[in-house]
Design a protein around this nucleic acid. Structure first.
Length: 498
DNA sequence: GATGCCGGGAC
DNA sequence: GTCCCGGCATC
């Protein structure tokens, strides 16, 4: 029933359609009323029958009253154990005096009711009234399973709406509501109760849970590698919700700073061991003596997992950035197309550094793959700003010549074919990366003073309209199919670059 | 009003 | 990831 066409953004129609979603409606019903007996029946719950639990990764509590099919008829049982791994539930059937093992989907928490009259089913095919989602009549004809379902759906939405980690806390409140089924203190759906409906240890996750805060996340917050630190701070200060998509998630890795090395490991332990065994020449027995010495010989780097700034095809990716300006020479900004950037004949740092097998998570920096070629946007940093993929020239010729900048870097043609399958580039944590990125972004267009606080407002980030003709102007609106993809998508024109 | 395109939603 | 569009800035 949902329209095939994509809904307009912020379209009222979209909102209406959204609210007509059965699950949503039921959610709103449940969420809207607090009356235990309130709410309509659940015509939107689909076919009547047992409430199967596997759909929600239901967490059954020991002692919970459930219903299973036994010998072709429904039996009441008590949960003895819920095995999440196998999704099986051990159930004691007091009536039969036996224990059974059932899959979770074969267990329900409320007794099966006779099939509802067709009217109920018929109502599902009716177009949903938006008002019905809001104004809920107080008709005490909810079936227990519908109540259960509503509660679960409400809890689902509550969980999804809430980004609080509290929701992910393990269930601490027994699911008395769900277990009783018939009595089903339906309206007593509380947050804690709702959270108790789901186990958080497996499989199911709410549609939009707040991701667990990892060390990497923490670093990415503190790493001004993209839009700027103040943006992050602003979100914190103004308690704004986290952006829907975090694009600059980075992984932590560790790069050996020993001369002629450069080995990258993803574990600090492995890195320490590497430094100890290969460079410090210490055996394991001595590690306690100079435990922290190896800390001076490696540095943290950040590997970008999702690269928002994918260079256009043919443009190689990033070059590792030194943590500090006086870092090792191979991390400097020299053209990595030369076989040995450091001039010390290290060849492939990190690969030839031995210690193979030292860590299974070894990552090669692949400096030869990091030739920096960005035709239109210069820069020497790992954060090479480029257009989105849709803006990347496909069959369109790129007319933007390399622009020399005051940077000490220069862009060179890639000396090898790009190998995107190679390990993602690493970025050494650098304080000035974000600032440099902004400079890079703005440099070709207008002079931008070396600002310490990158501007975020539109007037700063928005491109100034160029003089060049755009596809719309050249081809006209009637030949939209001849526009470049970016223009068709209302993005920055790629065919007629400024 | 037309145009360029950023930001973000839908898929 | 692509595709699309609302909305804003600019002309």
């Amino acid at each position: 029933m949902l329209p095939k066409t994509r809904l307009g953004k912020r379209s009222p129609l979209g909102a209406l359609v959204c609210t007509s979603c059965p699950s949503m409606e039921s959610t709103l019903e449940t969420g809207a009323h607090g009356d235990p007996e309130g709410g309509v029946g659940s015509p939107t719950m689909g076919p009547p029958g047992p409430q199967h639990l596997s759909r929600f990764n239901y967490k059954l509590q020991p002692g919970q009253k459930v219903y299973v099919l036994c010998g072709g008829r429904e039996c009441t049982g008590v949960v003895e154990q819920h095995n999440h791994v196998d999704n099986e539930v051990a159930i004691l059937l007091p009536a039969l005096g036996q224990h059974v093992l059932r899959k979770l989907q074969d267990v329900w928490t409320s007794p099966t009711v006779p099939p509802q009259p067709p009217a109920a089913t018929q109502s599902t095919s009716k177009p949903y009234q938006v008002s019905s989602c809001i104004d809920v009549p107080n008709v005490p004809r909810r079936s227990p399973e519908s109540v259960d379902m509503d509660e679960m759906m409400a809890a689902l939405v509550l969980t999804s709406l809430s980004c609080s980690p509290v929701v992910q806390s393990p269930p601490h409140r027994d699911t008395v509501i769900g277990s009783t089924g018939m009595e089903c203190g339906a309206g007593e759906l509380s947050d804690s109760g709702s959270s108790g409906y789901w186990s958080c240890d497996r499989g199911y996750r709410s549609p939009a849970p707040s991701p667990p805060i990892t060390e990497t996340e923490g670093h990415s917050l503190a790493t001004p590698t993209d839009e700027g630190l103040d943006m992050e701070l602003e979100q914190v200060l103004f308690d704004e919700p986290a952006p829907r998509k975090r694009r600059n998630s980075v992984k932590l890795a560790y790069r050996c700073l020993w001369p002629n090395c450069g080995k990258i490991l993803t574990s600090v332990v492995g890195m320490k061991r590497h430094v100890r065994t290969l460079h410090l020449g210490q055996s394991v027995e001595h590690e306690r003596c100079s435990r922290s010495e190896e800390d001076f010989y490696y540095t943290e780097i950040h590997q970008r997992e999702l690269q928002p700034l994918t260079p256009p095809p043919g443009v190689s990716t990033h070059t590792p950035i030194p943590t500090t300006s006086n870092s090792t020479p191979w991390l400097a900004c020299a053209s990595p197309s030369s076989p040995s950037p450091s001039g010390v004949g290290s060849g492939e740092p990190g690969v030839g550094a031995g210690a193979g097998g030292d860590s299974p998570t070894e990552v090669s920096p692949q400096p030869s793959q990091l030739s920096q070629s960005a035709p239109s946007i210069p820069g020497c940093f790992g954060q090479v700003h480029s257009e989105h993929s849709y803006q990347a020239p496909t069959s369109v010729q790129v007319v933007a010549p390399p622009v020399s900048v005051s940077s000490s870097c220069r862009w060179t043609k890639p000396t090898s074919t790009p190998q995107p399958s190679q390990g993602a580039p690493f970025l050494v944590r650098s304080v000035s990366v974000g600032e440099q990125w902004l400079q890079l972004q703005n440099a070709p267009i207008r002079p931008h003073p070396a600002s310490t606080s990158p501007p975020r407002s539109h007037w700063a980030t928005r491109r100034i309209r160029g003089e060049a003709k755009k596809c719309r102007k050249v081809y006209g609106i009637e030949h939209r199919d001849q526009w470049c993809t970016a223009c068709r998508w209302k993005k920055a024109c790629q065919r007629f670059l400024d």
